[in-house]
Amino acid sequence: MSVRIKVHSPGLFTTLQDGGRFGYEHQGVPPSGPMDSIAHRIANLLVGNPANAAALEMTALGGSFAVVGGDCNVCVSGRVQLLVDSPGEVQRELETWRTHRLAAGSVLSVGYLEHGMRAYLAVAGAFVVPLVLGSASTLTRARLGGIEGRCLAAGDEIPIGAATAAVDSRTFPRELIDACYGTGAIGVLLGPQDDYFSAGQIDAFLGAGFKVSAQSDRMGYRLQGPAIAHRHGADIVSDAIVAGSIQIPGSGQPIIALHDRQTTGGYAKIATVIAADLPRLGQYQPGQIVRFTALSIDDAVERWRALVARLGAFAAQCGRPIPFPEENNMNRGVTYRD
């Protein structure tokens, strides 16, 4: 039988995600895809996959996974402890953000996230599952994609495609990680319904720190902080919600819509997180404080351009130039494997 990964322990909330299920938002289907697209892409590139190939997204706690049926190149991205038990060897620690060759029978253990909220496991050849609406991404809310539309469970076996090329062991350097994610307050553009709020309330929103609540998941983050008041009520006639839309419901406590979001909603949206800061936002832990800073569209696009350029340069070094922008390409049915 071909090479596959067998799940020994699944972690807390581990799902299969590829680049995303684009092109169906007008039919109520959110794109899903990785909460941290930087870590997801890098893990894939390091094992020689296309950047948008299907990989595991682990949440808060990694889990343990056995390599069955053959050897396999793997990479885990994220700030997490990584251990491997290989047949006939003592347990050893492996570096994250680096390619490793694992012998058949090896068991990879991914620990608690030390910093951040999500880690990714990519395997050379990528996980192979039936595509739903063109994507392997899991949307648990609608039981779509991935493994039967659910989180991984102990005993699951996920087949791996044939790796096309031998891959040198590579590392994604620390300074490049830092440069990609950036630091500081999360950048936003005001709108689309910032006119539902007074200038004073917008200042209050931008000046405050908000705690990421425990009720935060792939659908969105619920924040806790000073209540943001509307001028004339929170309700709008429902319109589209994008990744990063910051809705203010009647309670005044913001909700940031993320990748498994509902595609439409009826609360006024004060601001939207910029594209370049979504991956970093995807790593916020419950209890952590998030702050926002308002940017101009030009500054936001510049930061997006810089991120795309950094990832693109690394992808080219890996021999896997990213067909940019890959979201667009997926709209047109580009395949996820060779």
């Binding site: 319904q193 994008v242 839309s245 939207t272």
Partner: peptide, 12 residues
Amino acid sequence: FLLAGDRALTVE
């Protein structure tokens, strides 16, 4: 025209 972030524009 309303900005819905740096990659989306809402036409109301």
